[in-house]
Design a protein around this nucleic acid. Structure first.
Lengths: 110, 110
DNA sequence: TGTAAATACTTTTTCAGCAAAAGTATTGTT
DNA sequence: AACAATACTTTTGCTGAAAAAGTATTTACA
C-alpha cells in the first residue's frame, strides 16, 4: 500500500469498524478478514491499528465486548455496538460523505 | 471542521492542488480561495498546510514557480504544473479512487 | 507425528500531514 | 485613518496508522 493510500484511508478504519458492527457482533481477527474480503484485498487493517481502535471505542462507550471460548484454551473477544455507537456512526458517516462530496466538487467529476 | 473531517481530508490537499494546476497557473492565495469556492465552503486549506505542500511539490519537480508583480511592492508567486507532475497527478488520482471505491464496497453503498 | 500455516491478540516505535496560531507586509475599501 | 482583504512564512503540537516484533493456540497436511 502506497504512502498516499495510507493517507487517503486516514480515519476511515474507525468508521468502517462501526459499520461492520452495525450488522453483527464480531471479534478482532474477524474484522480484519472482513476488511480484506469486502474490499477485494485493497483495504487492509493491520492488527496494530485495529485493536487500538477497538479499545478506544470501548472506552468511549460506543461499543462493548465479551469473551466467548473457541477451543480448549483460546478465546474470542467479541465486540457489540451500543446505541451511543450507532448515533456516533451516523454522525461520522455524514462527515465522511460531506468531505468526499466536497472533494468531488473540487475535482469536478460527476 | 471536526477532528474526523480533518482525518478524512488527509493527503487530499496535495491531490487537489495538482488538479487545480492542471487547468491553469495559480498563486497560493488564489488556491485557498478556489478550495473554498468550489467546495461551497466545506473544504478549507489553511496557509500553514498549503505552502508546505507547494514547496514540497516544487522540490520534487512536479511543479515550478515564477513571480509576477502585483501592485507597486507586492508580488504573486505563481505555480505551474510540469509534465512530471501531470503523471504523478494521474497516479495519485488512481490511488484515491481505488481507496474510496474499496471503502464504498465495505460500506456496501451503491 | 511433526511442522508449517492460520488463527487470535498485544505492545512499542516511528513518522507524516495538517490544524492552529502567530507574524510580516501590502493593497483596497469605507 | 482605520479596517478588511490580500499575500506569504514559520513554528508547534497532535493524531492515526504503518511497521515490526512478540506470545500462544488451533488446524492442515505431508
Amino acid at each position: 500500500m502506497s504512502q498516499n493510500q495510507d493517507n487517503f484511508k486516514r480515519g476511515t478504519a474507525e468508521l468502517l469498524v462501526l459499520h461492520l458492527l452495525m450488522k453483527e457482533d464480531l471479534y478482532g481477527y474477524q474484522i480484519t478478514q472482513a476488511f480484506d474480503e469486502k474490499s477485494g484485498g485493497v483495504y487492509t487493517v493491520l492488527e496494530g491499528s485495529l485493536y487500538p481502535i477497538l479499545y478506544k471505542l470501548c472506552e468511549a462507550g460506543y461499543i462493548t465486548d465479551y469473551v466467548v471460548p473457541a477451543g480448549k484454551k483460546r478465546t474470542r473477544r467479541y465486540y457489540h455496538i451500543e446505541e451511543k455507537g450507532r448515533v456516533y456512526y451516523a454522525e461520522m458517516l455524514g462527515e465522511y460523505l460531506d468531505i468526499t462530496e466536497a472533494i468531488r466538487k473540487i475535482l469536478d467529476t460527476p
